[in-house]
């Protein structure tokens, strides 16, 4: 009997995902209401709950895709995968204001460069502090601190070793997860409550998953503005990483 149920769940993965996420959301809003009196947003708790599930799934299945690596929860992989994520993000643009988007154009470009360069320097600095002295490794780890996509792409272009690549990806994952968790907590103190700041935020942080989840947990109305800016970050990072940033690093560490 239990096998029959299991098979049915396996065959209807996306429906399982709807039910699981729905239940998780309900529990999260309950916790938000009862224990934080709404101070910590329900969706922030839900995102954190999702990360916990991802950890449990990682331990249980030993894969890279969190809970989605367990066959029963494979539907989570579809629901939260790149295709539907991009689809829903584009949908959030419906109702956004053209004027607000246009007004912040140049500041966002500045934010993109500032965000990438500062993240890179921080990551590269930590790599140096841990004893790395060759430009390829330092650049790869620094690029990982930009996003977990920029890291491995830069590393692959420069021919970094696989352990450095793993560190680089891990640094990017830490960034994405921290941005998800920290955004709703620091939103007030950085003035993240209007479209303009949301665009600056998206351009500065850049990590797509971090920004999209962080804004969702702060104020869903700001999502399209932040994501619009963040959508150029990874691309620009991939452009700068193996080129300008690598050359600049090699000037300092010619090893």
């Amino acid at each position: 009997m239990s096998d029959v149920i299991y098979q049915a769940l396996l065959k209807n993965g996306l429906l399982v995902a709807f039910a699981v996420v729905g239940a998780l959301t309900w529990v999260s809003y309950f916790i938000s209401d009862r224990f934080t009196r709404g101070r910590l947003h329900g969706s922030a708790i839900a995102v954190f709950g999702g990360l916990l599930l991802a950890y449990v799934g990682g331990v249980a299945a030993g894969g890279k895709n969190g809970i989605a690596d367990l066959p029963m929860f494979a539907g989570i992989g579809l629901l939260g995968g790149a295709m539907l994520r991009d689809f829903a993000i584009v949908a959030t643009a419906y109702g956004a204001s053209f004027a607000d988007l246009k007004r912040s154009g140049l500041p966002v470009v500045i934010a993109l460069f500032a965000g990438i360069i500062v993240s890179f320097i921080c990551g590269a600095g930590v790599a140096v502090a841990y004893g790395y002295r060759d430009a390829v490794s330092i650049t790869t780890i620094g690029a990982g601190a930009v996003t977990y996509i920029v890291g491995p792409i830069t590393g692959a272009a420069l021919g970094a070793t696989s352990d450095v690549m793993a560190l680089s990806i891990a640094a990017g994952l830490v960034k994405a997860i921290l941005v998800m968790i920290a955004t709703p907590l620091v939103a007030k103190s950085i003035g993240l409550d209007n479209p303009h700041t949301a665009m600056i935020y998206g351009g500065t942080m850049g990590t797509n998953s971090g920004v999209s989840a962080g804004l969702a947990a702060t104020d869903p109305k700001l999502v399209p503005y932040g994501v619009m800016a963040a959508t150029f970050y990874t691309g620009l990072g991939c452009l700068l990483g193996p080129s300008v940033l690598y050359f600049a690093t090699r000037l300092i560490f010619p090893g």
Binding site: V21, G50, K64, V223
Partner: peptide, 28 residues
């Protein structure tokens, strides 16, 4: 969008981030 983001969070490589150790954590 938000449910999808929750599902996205549930498939992040959280274990990988933790396994990266202090260097990866500090860099990020």
């Amino acid at each position: 969008y938000i449910p999808i983001v929750v599902a996205m969070a549930a498939q992040q490589n959280v274990l990988g981030a933790i396994k990266g150790g202090p260097l990866a954590f500090l860099a990020g």
